[in-house]
Nucleic acid binder design. Structure first.
Length: 449
RNA sequence: GGCCCCAUCGUCUAAUGGUUAGGACAGCGGCUUUUCAAGCCGUCAACAGGGGUUCGACUCCCCUUGGGGCUGCCA
C-alpha cells in the first residue's frame, strides 16, 4: 500500500507557521516514501470559512514549495457522504440525537468539575429514538475499554473510553462536526498516515471510535510537537507574526522551510535544501517536545540564503535597480530582505548632516582638504580597484592613517557612519556618481552656517 | 478540576549505560581594520528534584515538580 498523507487546514485564517511545518513534514514523509501529499480544506464551519483564506493557503503552500499532489478536497463538498453515514449510524443505534440544551450541558460540566470528575456528557437520550432533533452524538459504551494507538513519534498512547462520554459528531444530518468529517475524509481519501499537531492527540481516541463505528480501517498516527512562542505557550496571533505570508517580505522560502524543518528534527547540517531533507528524513525521529520559534536563528539562516543569491535573483526578488557590484555589498550584510532599503545610497544620492564628514578630531578644513585631495586623485583615474587601493593608500600614508582619507569618503558616498569600504561603494556606483558625491561633500563643508 | 503529552546551555539540539556532556544561534572578548558586515580564534552557559535498577546512569523504571495541549453544537 503506498503512502498517502495530507494536511487539512481550515480556511478561517492564513496558513499558520505550525501548519506550514506540518505540511513540510507530511511532504517530506510522502517524498521519502514515494507517496502522495494532499491538501484538504476543512471548511465545515461555514460561518468562518472564506474563499480568500482558502486562496491564501494555496499561495502560502506554493511559496514554500509544498505544492499538493492531485485534486484539492473540500469538506463542504462531502456533505452527502456525511449524511448517509450519519443516517446509517443512527439506524444502527451507534449514534443518537441528543436534545439537551447548552445550559444543561454546561451545568453538567460544572457539576462534574466541582466533584473532580472527568468532564463529559453521559446522555440519557441514548436509547430513546422518539424525536429527530438536537445534535447527533456517538453512543460510547461505559465499560473499562482502553483505546490505544501507536504513535509513530511518541510510541503507545492510551485513553480510557469511558472518560470520553457521548461526544458530538454532527450538529444535524447536514452539518458534520470536525471529528466525524475528518474520519470520513481520511478514510475516503485512503490516507495511510495522519501526521498532525500534538494538539490533536486527545481527538485521536474519539476518531478511533468513529472509525470503528463506521467499520473503516484506522490509519497510522504521528503527532508533531507544537511550535512555541518565547513564553513557551502555543504560538498564536498575540505573539505577532504567525502566518506564513507574514514572512514573505523579509524571508526566502528556502530559509523558512529550512528553519521550520530544523526546529523539530535534527538533520546532519544547519543549512540544507528540501531535497537533502528528504534523503535524511525519518518520521519516527521527529522530536517529541515543542520548540520555541527563535527569530534570531531564522534570521541567521535567512542571511545564509541571501548571501547565496545571484545578483539577478536578488534584483528579481527585491525589484531594486542596482549594479551587480552593489548587490554583493548588500547581500553580505542583509538578514531581512526589506532591510535592503538601508542601502539606498547604492542607487540614490544620500542626505546627511555635514558634521558626519568629520573624522574624529579633524577640523572641517582638514576634512575638506582631504576630500579635495581624493577628488584630485579620482578625477583623472581610470576606474578600477587596484588603482584606487594604491592611490588612496598613498594618500593615507601622507595623512598619517587611513581614517582621515577613508572616513570622509565613506560619508560622502554613503551618508552613513557604517557602510562597506568606500572603494567598494565607488566601484559599485561608478565614477561619475562618485565624483559628484565627493564634490558635493566639499561644497557642503564650504557652506557657512 | 479531569485526561493526555513533554522535560540537556538563554534558544534549537547531540549523547541511545562508561564523553573533560559535543555542536549551532544568540551573548561576550579578541584578531583583522577606515566604519559596518563577513571570516577566524576564544569565552560564558545545561543534564529540574528525589528515589530506585546497575560495577556504572543524561541515557532504563517510579514518584515529585515544572511546562504545554485538550477538555465546544471550532478546527
Amino acid at each position: 500500500m503506498s503512502v498517502k498523507v495530507r494536511i487539512a487546514p481550515s480556511p478561517t485564517g492564513f496558513l499558520h507557521v505550525g501548519t506550514g511545518q506540518s505540511a513540510l513534514y507530511n511532504w517530506l514523509f510522502a517524498r521519502k516514501n514515494g507517496g502522495t501529499f494532499q491538501l484538504r480544506i476543512e471548511d465545515t464551519d461555514r460561518e468562518r470559512s472564506t474563499k480568500e483564506y482558502e486562496q491564501s493557503i494555496f499561495d502560502a503552500l506554493a511559496w514554500l514549495g509544498l505544492t499538493p499532489d492531485g485534486e484539492i478536497s473540500r469538506q463542504s463538498e462531502h456533505a452527502g457522504q456525511y449524511r448517509s453515514a450519519l443516517e446509517e449510524l443512527l439506524a444502527e443505534g451507534k449514534a443518537f440525537y441528543c436534545r439537551h440544551t447548552q445550559e444543561e450541558l454546561e451545568a453538567e460540566r460544572k457539576n462534574q468539575e466541582s466533584k473532580k470528575e472527568p468532564p463529559r456528557h453521559l446522555c440519557d437520550h441514548k436509547n430513546s429514538r422518539e424525536e429527530e432533533s438536537g445534535i447527533i452524538r456517538l453512543a460510547v459504551k461505559e465499560d473499562d475499554r482502553i483505546i490505544k494507538f501507536d504513535d509513530i513519534i511518541r510510541g503507545p498512547i492510551e485513553f480510557q473510553a469511558s472518560l470520553l462520554g457521548d461526544f458530538s459528531i454532527a450538529k444535524s444530518l447536514d452539518e458534520a462536526l470536525y471529528n466525524f468529517a475528518v474520519v470520513m475524509d481520511d478514510a475516503d481519501m485512503r490516507i495511510t498516515h495522519v501526521i498532525r499537531g500534538e494538539d490533536h492527540i486527545s481527538n485521536t481516541p474519539k476518531q478511533i471510535l468513529i472509525y470503528e463505528a463506521l467499520g473503516l480501517p484506522i490509519p497510522h498516527f504521528a503527532h508533531l510537537p507544537l511550535i512555541l512562542a518565547s513564553d513557551r505557550s502555543k504560538l498564536s496571533k498575540r505573539h505577532g507574526a504567525v502566518a506564513v505570508v507574514d514572512y514573505k517580505k523579509d524571508y526566502l522560502p528556502e530559509a523558512l522551510s529550512n528553519f521550520l524543518g530544523s526546529i523539530g528534527y535534527t538533520f546532519s547540517k544547519e543549512i540544507l535544501t528540501k531535497e537533502e531533507m528528504i534523503s535524511e528524513f525519518d518520521l519516527s525521529k521527529v522530536h517529541k517536545s515543542g520548540a520555541v520559534f527563535d527569530v534570531k536563528k531564522l534570521n541567521w539562516i535567512n542571511a545564509q540564503y541571501i548571501r547565496r543569491l545571484s545578483a539577478s535573483e536578488f534584483k528579481g526578488l527585491t525589484g531594486l535597480k542596482v549594479s551587480d557590484e552593489a548587490v554583493l555589498l548588500i547581500t553580505e550584510r542583509l538578514e531581512k530582505l526589506s532591510d535592503a532599503s538601508e542601502f539606498s545610497y547604492l542607487w540614490s544620492e544620500p542626505e546627511y548632516p555635514k558634521e558626519l564628514l568629520l573624522w574624529k578630531t579633524s577640523s572641517s578644513e582638514e576634512v575638506k582638504q582631504s576630500l579635495e585631495k581624493s577628488l584630485k586623485f579620482l578625477e583623472p583615474l581610470e576606474w578600477g580597484r587596484e588603482a584606487m587601493v594604491a592611490g588612496l593608500g598613498h594618500l593615507s600614508n601622507e595623512a598619517g592613517g587611513k581614517g582621515p582619507v577613508f572616513w570622509p569618503l565613506r560619508v560622502a558616498l554613503s551618508g552613513k557612519d557604517k557602510s562597506p569600504d568606500p572603494i567598494d561603494i565607488a566601484l559599485a556606483i561608478g565614477k561619475e556618481e562618485t565624483i559628484k558625491r565627493v564634490q558635493k561633500a566639499v561644497n557642503q563643508l564650504d557652506e557657512q552656517d
